[in-house]
Design a protein around this nucleic acid. Structure first.
Length: 787
RNA sequence: GCGAAAGUGGCGGAACUGGUAGACGCGCUGGAUUUAGGUUCCAGUGGAUCGCUCCGUGAGGGUUCGAGUCCCUCCUUUCGCACCA
């Protein structure tokens, strides 16, 4: 068993902290690591600290650089332009998180889209395998696999060419999954950055202004998808590939240059977005599919318009169904060299360049005569200086001469280093390999073959797509370079829910929100416990309640368990946290229940202290009292369920089972109770030991169960204890609970029915009515159906 | 907007494949112990009537002898949407 711990230590939060405190990100990061490490140690986790990894250390990130260079040689890393958020005031690139409603978070300036050169990893080369291998990951939650499948987004369609005479002629290509509707295409739209759009704008100031306007706002898909759909005609036309009919060419802000061909064909009758766009701008709508809504598509839009169906108003294709129409149209396009069937992916290549300081330096050198030259292996690692302090005006490396200056490895002339750093997802894509061999002098060594893949990986549900997909990709890349034998990094995956907490803020003098930590705020509630208002404890003045959100550094609503640990100890903190909810579920942090966890452990301790002598080794007497045997049965029933719950990682009900056992043995009296108490407590201690290791270890040894609870056998259900002579059945009449009967465990169906019908209360409810049938669920209930 | 989930007492949550809704805990109420507070212990605690009973798992429909659980429609919340990680 290997349980390591490490630090994903590069990234934006360290730069933000630096801006606030004027402390270098490195210093802030290392002190956080020290604090967190000591906290994890005080919680008593069995972490193997000899394998600790920090991604911001050169002995780790040098292998990011090394593999980057290998991938560059193989063409899996390549350069192209990408779109970024540009803050025109701070003159810097912004992360999507830093763009709020299309404006820069610090300056409030309207953000612009900018095209800059970036390095990409060709994850799409692995799309087919990343999709196919999901089927084998049966230790992963189905929802995560579904999300990844949808993200990869394999779609079968047709690439269609629209010939045109613009700029001496050419063909505008689009991709569509609905080639069957091609006869209903009434216009074609391109992205604002598309060459045809730029050409049309040359003599059209109005269009140029519109294209300029399209550059405003963020680049994130969510932002583009929710913005108002706008467009403008270019005045140009392209030809329909089958009919030759001229179709107007539009520029639309919802068409993305970076996705597919940067152009779409529009079929307003059968696509909701095109339908809305056509209505807004008065473009023609031509129904070409017979759907369940009929042969016409009057406004408003109905979902049925997008259904597959038979072609109509489509000339020779009339009457064909979806597959036949796609085949026929693709064949005709093929004959004209204007199209073919094609598989496309929603997945895009992974842009890894960041215009930031606190990350792995990209190991490239910019030479005025040789261009971009890779850093030779013997000069790795390219070490990131740790003394810079970002100030919000861009990457400080750009002004750091000691880092920048170098010589070109090719020509030996003076050159400059690349100042872009790598996406931090690179760091987190393979750290688990490094745990297996943290001191290796290569990226990984043979020890990785012994340990990998990880049997159990635990991470937040927010990583369901990006981190987990990049890690899978990176593993396959490492495999193809012979660095590992495994093709998938994680056999079993547990996705934790989010921990959410209330947020509080005040409007600062500069108009920005000052986020206050919940620990510093006192909340008053109404008589139903709902929050009414809040004040800051230090000055007693009101603060604004910002609602409940996932804990984050940016909203300052994280909770530090340190006070909990100091006040109650590690075991109470652990029991409380595991008792709150199953780990997959999201959880609103509230420590009001911590007293209950503490009380339980105190009761456990005092039970052992009060009964220590009686608990001395004693066997269950053959003539034990009946009520004692009932309690023993309950203990084993509880154990049986707890073992199932452990398997489901449902630790809250395991703790509940331990509480039940303590409640049961605490009340126990009668002949044989000492033995059952001893047995029950031994089961309880072992069930609880992974959750509260310190107290259970001490009690296990102190009560003489054994030397070390870690070496004790896992508790097992005694089938003999579960045996019952009689069972209680619930009796329903027409599905409603009307009584309970006790029958011998061996009673047959007829005897059970008879006992149920004999019940006084049941008699009352069936009186004067006909018994239609009686349903008996063995061991559970009887349902008498009357009319 | 698109993809994935989740909605159960005052609160956190439980209910394995459809079979007694509310386990366990928090909080609250009453009582005991205590000079008092805290601790600890006992009893009660979904709502309405407080007799039997009726109503209750986001809303509305449906399937079934029986629905928190399955199906349809809707609402709300959370996560992700490629530069937060």
């Amino acid at each position: 068993m290997l349980q390591p711990m490490g630090w994903d230590a590069f990234g934006l939060p360290a730069e933000n902290a630096a801006m606030n405190n004027g402390v270098p990100p490195a210093q802030w990061t290392y002190s956080n690591i020290d604090y967190m490490r000591s906290q994890l140690q005080s919680l008593g986790f069995a972490v193997d600290w000899s394998r600790e990894v920090a991604t911001c250390k050169p002995d780790y990130y040098r292998w990011n650089q090394w593999l980057f260079l290998r991938l560059l040689e193989k063409g899996i890393v390549y350069q192209k332009t990408g779109t970024v958020n540009w803050d025109p005031v701070d003159q810097t690139v912004l992360a999507n998180e830093q763009v709020i409603d299309g404006r820069g978070w610090r300056t409030g300036a309207v953000v612009e889209k900018r095209e800059i050169p970036m390095y990409y990893m060709a994850i799409t080369q692995y799309a087919e395998e990343l999709l196919a291998d999901l089927d084998q990951l049966d230790g992963w939650p189905e929802q995560v696999r579904t999300m990844q499948r949808n993200w990869i987004g394999k779609s079968f369609g047709v690439r269609v060419g629209f010939p045109h005479q613009i700029e001496g002629g050419g063909t505008l290509w689009v991709f569509t999954t609905r080639a069957d509707t091609l006869m209903g295409a009434t216009y074609v739209a391109v992205a604002a950055e598309h060459p045809l759009a730029l050409h049309a704008a040359k003599n059209n100031p109005e269009l140029a202004a519109f294209i300029e306007e399209c550059k405003h706002g963020g680049v994130s898909e969510a932002e583009i998808a929710t913005q108002e759909k706008k467009g403008m005609a270019t005045g140009l036309t392209v030809s329909h590939p089958l009919t030759g009919e001229p179709l107007p060419l539009w520029v639309a802000n919802y068409v993305l240059m970076g996705y597919g061909e940067g152009a779409v064909m529009a079929v307003p009758a059968h696509d909701e977005r095109d339908f809305a766009f056509a209505h807004k701008y008065g473009l023609p709508i031509k129904a070409v599919i017979k759907t369940s809504a009929g042969e016409a598509t009057p406004a408003p839009w109905q979902e049925a318009y997008a259904e597959h169906g038979q072609c109509i108003n489509s000339g020779k294709y009339d009457g064909l169904d979806f597959n036949a129409a796609v085949d026929a149209i693709a064949a005709d396009l093929n004959a004209k060299n204007l199209g073919e069937k094609k598989v496309t992916w929603r997945l895009r290549d992974w842009g890894i360049s960041r215009q930031r300081y606190w990350g792995t330096p990209i190991p490239m050198i910019k030479c005025p005569s040789c261009g971009d030259v890779p850093v030779p292996d013997d000069q790795l690692p390219v070490v990131l200086p740790e003394e810079c302090v970002p100030d919000g005006s861009g990457n400080p490396l750009n002004k750091y001469e000691a880092f920048l200056a170098c010589t070109c490895p090719k020509c030996g002339g003076a050159a400059r280093r690349e100042t872009d750093t790598m996406d931090t997802f690179v760091d987190s894509s393979w750290y688990f390999f490094r745990y297996t061999c943290p001191d290796a002098t290569t990226m990984v060594d043979a020890r990785a073959d012994y340990w990998m893949p990880a049997d159990q990986y635990i991470g937040g549900i927010e990583h369901a797509i990006l981190h987990l997909l990049y890690s899978r990709f990176w593993t396959k890349v490492m495999r193809d370079f012979g660095l590992t034998k495994v093709g998938e990094p994680f056999r079993n995956l547990l996705t934790q829910g989010m921990v959410v907490a209330p947020t509080f803020y005040r409007d600062g003098a500069d108009g920005r929100k000052q986020w206050l930590n919940p620990a510093d705020v006192a909340v008053t509630t109404d008589d139903k416990g709902r929050p009414l208002s809040a004040i800051l404890k230090s000055d007693g003045l009101p603060v604004i309640m910002g609602g409940i959100e996932k804990m984050s550094k940016s909203k300052n609503n994280g909770v530090d368990p340190q006070t909990l640990i100091e006040q109650y100890g590690a075991d109470t903190a652990r029991v409380f946290m595991m008792f709150a909810a199953p780990p997959e579920q999201s959880l609103e942090w509230n420590d009001s229940g911590v007293e209950g966890a503490h009380r339980f452990l105190k009761r456990l301790w005092s039970f052992a202290a009060d009964n220590g002598a009686a608990l001395a080794d004693s066997a269950l007497p053959a003539d034990a009292a009946a009520e004692v045997l009932v309690v023993r049965r309950e203990i084993h029933e509880t154990l049986q369920q707890a073992l199932v719950d452990f398997g489901k990682h449902q630790f809250n009900t395991v703790i509940s089972a331990c509480m039940k056992i303590l409640n049961a043995i605490g009340k126990l009296e009668g002949h044989g109770s000492d033995a059952v108490q001893r047995e029950g407590l031994s089961i309880l201690l072992r069930l609880l030991s992974p959750i509260a290791p310190h107290i259970t270890h001490e009690l296990w040894r102190g009560l003489g169960y054994g030397d070390d609870i870690l070496h004790a056998a896992w508790p097992q259900v005694d089938a003999a204890a579960l045996k019952r002579d009689s069972i209680e059945l619930v009796v329903q009449v027409n599905g409603k609970l009307r009584g309970k009967v006790n029958v011998p465990a061996t009673a047959d169906k007829a005897a059970v029915e008879q006992a149920a019908l004999a019940d006084e209360n049941v008699q009352r409810f069936i009186e004067g009515q006909t018994v239609a049938k009686i349903i008996v669920v063995p061991g559970k209930l009887v349902n008498v159906v009357v009319r």
